Simulated scan of single mutants.
Amino acid sequence: MAIPVVWIYWIFSLTVVTYVSAFIINRYREYGFAALVAFYTIYLTASQIVAARLIEFDLGFYTFFAPAAVFLYPFLSQAIDMINEVYGERKTHIAIIIAFITQVLFVIFIFMTNSLSPAPFFAYEDAWQGIFSQSIRIIIASWLSFLVFQNLDAYVFAWLKRKYPKQVFLRSASSDVISLTFDSLIFVVLAFYGVAPVVPLIIGQIVAKNLIGLLDTPWFIWYKRYLEDNPVTDRQ
C-alpha cells in the first residue's frame, strides 16, 4: 500500500527541523533559541493560512472533515516542547508572546494589502479575498485558543519535567494531548457556536490533532537523545 504523499512531506519536514534544531543548539547554543522561535513562528503562520482549506481525514474505519492545519498544530506543540526542554518555561512563554505578536502583525498586513485595489488583469481577486478575508470572530477565536493552549502546554510540560524528569515521552505526549484538546474546544466554540454544529467539529479536531500529536512524539525523543549524546558546547 502506497504511503499518502502528505505523510512523506510531514515526516521529511519534521525530521529536518528536529535535526537542524538539535544541531544548532549543540553547536551554537546562543543561536538555538532564535532558531526554534523562527521554526515555531513559521509553523504558526502556515497554520493560519492552510486552516482555510477543509480536508477529508480518512482513518480507514472512519472519515471526518477538519481544517488542513490539523497537520501543523502538533508541530507547534513539538516546537514549544523543544524550547521548554532546553531553555526552560520562562523563555517558552517569551517565545509564545513573540509568536503571538507576529500573528497580529500578519493579520494587520493582510488587512492592509486587502484594502488596496487589485490590478484589472489580476484574475484571482475573488479567490484571494475568499481565503484571506477571515471574520473578526474567527481571528479572535484563533488568537485566544492559541494563547491558552500554548501557555497550557508550556506549563504542563514544565510541571511534568520537574515531577518526572526521566519520563520524556510522558511530558511530551501528555502536554500535547491536554493542550491540543483545549485548543479544539476553545476555538470551535468561540468561532462557530450558533452558526455551525460545534460537536462534530470539536470531535474531528480533537481526534485529528491528538492522533498526529502522538505520532510526532518519537521525534521529540530523538531530539532529547541527540542532545544527551552530544553535550551542548559553545563554539564560535
Rank of each mutant, 00 (worst) to 15 (best):
Ala99Tyr: 06
Ala119Ile: 06
Val168Pro: 03
Phe111Lys: 14
Phe100Ser: 04
Ile97Ser: 11
Gly88Glu: 03
Phe122Asn: 14
Phe187Tyr: 03
Arg171Gly: 02
Ala154Ser: 15
Phe187Lys: 01
Ile97Leu: 12
Val156Lys: 13
Ala141Thr: 10
Tyr87Phe: 15
Asp153Ala: 08
Phe122Ser: 15
Pro118Cys: 08
Asp153Met: 07
Gln103Asp: 02
Ser133Glu: 08
Phe169His: 06
Ser115Phe: 07
Ile83Gln: 09
Val156Pro: 12
Ala141Ser: 15
Arg171Trp: 01
Trp128Ile: 01
Met112His: 08
Ser174Asp: 01
Val156Glu: 14
Ser142Glu: 03
Glu125Thr: 07
Asp126Glu: 15
Ala191Val: 03
Arg90Pro: 00
Ile108Trp: 12
Leu116Ala: 08
Ala127Leu: 14
Pro118His: 12
Val189Phe: 00
Ile186Arg: 03
Val177Thr: 02
Ser142Gln: 09
Leu105Cys: 12
Leu152Met: 15
Val177His: 00
Trp159Gln: 11
Pro120Gly: 10
Glu89Ala: 14
Glu89Gly: 09
Leu147Ala: 14
His93Ile: 00
Glu89Met: 13
Ala127Gly: 13
Ile136Ala: 12
Ile178Gly: 01
Phe169Met: 05
Ala173Cys: 01
Ser184Glu: 00
Ile96Ala: 07
Arg137Trp: 08
Asp81Phe: 11
Phe109Asp: 12
Phe121Val: 12
Ser115Asp: 10
Arg137Lys: 14
Phe109Asn: 12
Ala123Ile: 05
Val156Ile: 15
Val168Ile: 11
Leu105Gln: 07
Ala95Val: 02
Val107Ala: 13
Arg137Cys: 08
Leu147Thr: 12
Asp153Pro: 08
Asp176Tyr: 00
Ile96Trp: 04
Phe109Arg: 09
Pro120Phe: 10
Ala191Ser: 08
Ser175Leu: 03
Phe106Gln: 09
Asp183Gly: 04
Lys161Pro: 05
Ile80Glu: 06
Ala123Trp: 05
Phe157Met: 06
Ala119Leu: 13
Glu85Gly: 03
Val177Tyr: 03
Ser133His: 11
Val188Phe: 07
Lys166Arg: 02
Phe122Arg: 13
Ile131Met: 13
Phe121Thr: 15
Leu116Phe: 06
Gly88Val: 02
Val189Pro: 00
Asp153Trp: 06
Arg171Asp: 01
Ala119Thr: 10
Ile83Pro: 05
Ile186Asn: 01
Ile136Phe: 14
Phe121His: 13
Ser115Trp: 09
Ile101Met: 14
Phe157Asp: 04
Lys161Glu: 09
Asp176Thr: 05
Ala99Leu: 05
Phe157Val: 05
Ile94Lys: 15
Thr113Met: 14
Ser172Gln: 00
Tyr164Glu: 04
Asn84Lys: 05
Ala95His: 03
Phe122Tyr: 15
Thr181Gly: 08
Phe169Trp: 11
Asp153Glu: 12
Lys166Glu: 07
Pro118Gln: 09
Glu89His: 12
Ser145Tyr: 07
